[in-house]
C-alpha cells in the first residue's frame, strides 16, 4: 500500500512537470506576447509604449532562454505560486482554490444524486432484465445521454424559475441555487451509472455465490443486498471516478448558464480575456486533481474487492 502510494506520488510529480511545461508553452503557441498582454491588462489604452514593454520584459525575465524561464516558473508553481491573474491582478492560486471548491460542491452533488438513483434503478433493471421495466430504463438512459445541457438548462430555468417561481434562476448562494444545476449535470452520469450497474448486476445475479446464499435461506433481495451490491458496485466506482475527475474541471455550459463561480466559468473567462496565468494554473490544478482522484478510486477499489491487492508491483 505504501509502495503503491509512493509510486503514484512519483507519477503525480512527473505528470505535473510535463503538463506544466505544456501549460507554460501556451502563450507561445497562442502567439501572445506576455509583456504586451500584461501591460494591456493594466492600462486600457491601446497605445503601447514600446520602451515600457521592453523594460517589463527584462524585469520579468522574459528575455531569458525559454528553458531557464520554465524552471524559474516551475519552481514557483511547486511552491504554490501560480502568479497573478492578468485581469483581476489577484493571485491565481487563491481564485482557483475558491472556484474548485464551488465546482467540487456542484460535481459531488450531481454525482451522488446520480449514484443514489442509479444504484437501485440499475439493480432493478438487472433483476427485470428483458422485461418492461428494463426497457423503459434503457430508453430513458439513452434519452438522458442525448439531451444537450445547453438546451435542458434553459428549459428547466424557464419552467422552475420563470414559470413556477420555485427556484432561483441563477447564482451561487446556498442550497436552492444548487438544485437546478445539479439536476442538469446529473442526468448524463445517471444514465451511465445505471447502465454500468445494470450490466454488472446481471453478472452478479448469475454468480454461483448468489445461488449459494439463497440456498442458505436468503431471499433474492436479501442475497443481492448482502452479497450482490458490494461486488456489483465496483465497475460503477471506476466510472464514478472518471466523471468526478471530469466534472471537477468545471462544466463550462452549466456554470456559465447558471452564473456559478466555478472552474468552468473561470477557464471560460480566462480564455476570453487571454488570461495566461489563470489558464496555466487551471490546467495544472485540474490534472493534479484528476490523478489524486484516480488514485483514491484505486485504493477504494482495493478496499471493496479483497482479490485486488493494492501494491506497487505490477500484477
Amino acid at each position: 500500500m505504501e509502495r503503491f502510494l509512493l509510486k503514484r506520488a512519483i507519477v503525480l510529480v512527473v505528470t505535473l512537470t510535463l503538463v506544466s511545461f505544456l501549460a507554460f508553452l501556451v502563450p507561445w503557441i497562442g502567439d501572445t506576447d506576455p509583456a504586451r498582454a500584461i501591460i494591456r491588462s493594466r492600462v486600457a489604452d491601446l497605445a503601447m509604449d514600446s520602451a515600457a514593454v521592453e523594460a517589463l520584459r527584462i524585469k520579468l525575465g522574459l528575455d531569458q532562454p525559454l528553458l531557464h524561464q520554465f524552471f524559474t516558473w516551475l519552481g514557483r508553481v511547486f511552491q504554490g505560486d501560480l502568479g497573478l491573474s492578468f485581469t483581476s491582478r489577484l493571485p491565481v492560486a487563491d481564485q482557483i482554490l475558491r472556484a474548485i471548491g464551488v465546482s467540487a460542491t456542484l460535481a459531488l452533488s450531481a454525482l451522488f444524486l446520480a449514484l443514489a438513483i442509479a444504484l437501485p434503478v440499475g439493480t432493478l433493471a438487472a433483476v427485470h432484465q428483458g422485461r418492461r421495466f428494463d426497457g423503459i430504463v434503457t430508453f430513458i438512459a439513452q434519452g438522458f445521454v442525448s439531451i444537450p445541457e445547453y438546451w435542458l438548462a434553459p428549459v428547466l430555468v424557464l419552467l422552475f424559475a420563470v414559470e413556477l417561481g420555485w427556484l432561483p434562476s441563477a447564482g451561487w448562494s446556498g442550497f436552492e441555487t444548487l438544485i437546478l444545476p445539479a439536476a442538469v449535470l446529473c442526468l448524463r452520469p445517471l444514465a451511465y451509472f445505471s447502465q454500468v450497474m445494470r450490466a454488472s448486476m446481471i453478472d452478479v445475479l448469475h454468480a454461483n455465490y448468489i445461488l449459494a446464499a439463497r440456498s442458505r435461506g436468503l431471499g433474492l433481495a436479501g442475497a443481492l443486498v448482502r452479497h450482490g451490491l458490494r461486488n456489483g458496485i465496483q465497475p460503477v466506482l471506476t466510472v464514478f471516478a472518471l466523471w468526478l475527475a471530469g466534472l471537477l474541471g468545471g462544466s463550462v455550459v452549466v456554470e456559465v448558464i447558471f452564473a456559478i463561480p466555478g472552474m468552468g466559468r473561470l477557464i471560460y473567462s480566462a480564455v476570453i480575456n487571454n488570461d495566461m496565468p489563470m489558464l496555466q494554473g487551471s490546467i495544472i490544478c485540474i490534472v493534479g486533481l484528476a490523478i489524486v482522484i484516480n488514485t483514491t478510486a484505486d485504493v477504494l477499489y482495493g478496499v471493496l474487492n479483497p482479490t485486488v491487492t493494492v501494491s506497487g508491483d505490477a500484477r
Binding site: 454468480a207 454461483n208 455465490y209 445461488l211 449459494a212 446464499a213 448482502r226 452479497h227 458490494r230 461486488n231 471493496l304 474487492n305 479483497p306 482479490t307
Partner: peptide, 12 residues
C-alpha cells in the same frame, strides 16, 4: 455444490 470456490462471495 461442485465448484466450491465460486460458491463463496469473493468480497465477504
Amino acid at each position: 455444490f461442485q465448484q466450491p470456490s465460486s460458491m463463496l462471495d469473493p468480497s465477504c
